[in-house]
Amino acid sequence: MTPATAGGGADSPYALSHLDALESEAVHIFREVAGEFERPVLLFSGGKDSIVMLHLALKAFAPAPVPFALLHVDTGHNFPEVLAYRDRTVARHRLRLHVASVQEYIDAGKLRERPDGTRNPLQTVPLTEAIQQHRFDAVFGGGRRDEEKARAKERVFSLRDEFSQWDPRRQRPELWQLYNGRHAPGEHVRVFPLSNWTELDVWQYIERERIELPEIYFAHEREVFRRNGMWLTAGDWGGPKEGETVEKRLVRYRTVGDMSCTGAVDSDATTLQAVIAEIAASRLTERGATRADDKLSEAAMEDRKREGYF
């Protein structure tokens, strides 16, 4: 059964809307994991996909509290608005938050800064070591199949070996929403409740559920500079360089990651309705349009996923 057919035929009085069907599928996944695994954790960065995941988890277990902690890999180059949102949300819902710091790994000599200044690829080691340290056996991520071709290969339950590495050949069939969480000691499963959602679905759901977002997702004036065809935020991470001019522009962010690799888009969309109209008219995926780390090579995302990245 797929989300499109979960509620019966389109003419049925009991048919679910596409958002209801996607929500129902995600809630089912959260409950399956809670019942099958001992130590799940939810990756939460304060980005829109992790915000929607947390909203769904709160729904899945209400009125009881969410039965697992949150984990954020902090690169040290995160947008301040997003970190402030993360901390407000954790406090409001009285959640447990683990933070794995890339800066601490650099200070300890376990990681080295990259020449391009981006720390997004450096997240893998802190992430995998946090999973091992806390013995998490299921890790919820906000990846969607429409984002990028490597993520399109993922199952909802994605097995990782004892080194947190991903082998596409070890993925299991998932027929009729039957999920196999079996794993050996030291292995864990990455779980993607939003796999079947699109960027437009996410925004429409945010509008329907009236979910608060960081203001960075809406058009605002910001000091940015042009690099490799993207508007990047000026900061201590390594930008701008000589010859790169900072200017104030009306922009917003479609996706939020490390400041050094996440580009803004020119936009005057200050409301949810305006953002939805903008997304519906776009012919580029959010990562294809605004993520420099995915442009490093043709298989950049898949290479990082094989090493343990999400």
Rank of each mutant, 00 (worst) to 15 (best):
A34M: 03
Y105R: 06
P3T: 03
D258Q: 14
K59V: 00
I206N: 08
F44A: 03
L70P: 00
Q204A: 07
A184I: 00
N228H: 15
E25R: 11
A274W: 00
P121G: 08
V156E: 11
T118C: 11
L111R: 09
T75M: 08
E286G: 06
P13D: 09
R249S: 12
P168G: 13
A60K: 07
V33M: 10
A69Y: 00
R304K: 12
L194S: 13
R145D: 11
R135E: 15
P185F: 01
D167E: 09
A289E: 12
W203A: 02
Q177A: 07
H220P: 05
A21Y: 02
H98C: 01
R252E: 03
A10C: 09
D137T: 10
D116A: 11
G239H: 03
A184L: 12
A300L: 04
I216S: 05
E81W: 02
P65F: 02
S297W: 02
E298P: 01
T271G: 09
V41G: 05
V275K: 13
D268V: 14
L19C: 00
G76A: 06
H98N: 01
F61P: 06
G142I: 09
A280V: 09
E221R: 15
P168M: 07
P185D: 01
T285L: 04
K241N: 11
P185H: 08
E187S: 07
R226K: 08
L296N: 07
E148W: 08
R291Q: 14
I29G: 05
T245G: 07
L16P: 03
M1K: 10
G243Q: 14
K305H: 11
P121L: 08
T118N: 11
H72L: 01
T262N: 13
G229K: 14
D74Y: 03
L213S: 08
Y85F: 12
E104W: 04
G76V: 01
I29Y: 07
G141Y: 09
F68E: 05
D294F: 07
Q273D: 13
H220M: 11
L272N: 15
S158C: 14
E223V: 14
R96L: 08
A57K: 04
E221P: 13
G239C: 04
V27P: 12
N196Y: 15
W231N: 15
F192Q: 12
D303I: 09
C261Q: 03
G47R: 05
L95A: 01
Q165D: 04
L194D: 10
V73Y: 04
T290K: 06
L250Q: 14
N228M: 06
I276D: 10
E199R: 15
R222E: 15
A6V: 05
G239Y: 04
R283T: 14
M301P: 04
Y85H: 10
R287T: 01
T118G: 09
A34P: 00
T75Y: 10
Y205H: 10
A62R: 08
A91I: 01
A4P: 00
V41N: 03
L58I: 07
K59N: 00
G76D: 00
T5Q: 13
F310R: 01
G9A: 06
H93C: 02
F140C: 10
H183M: 09
R155Q: 12
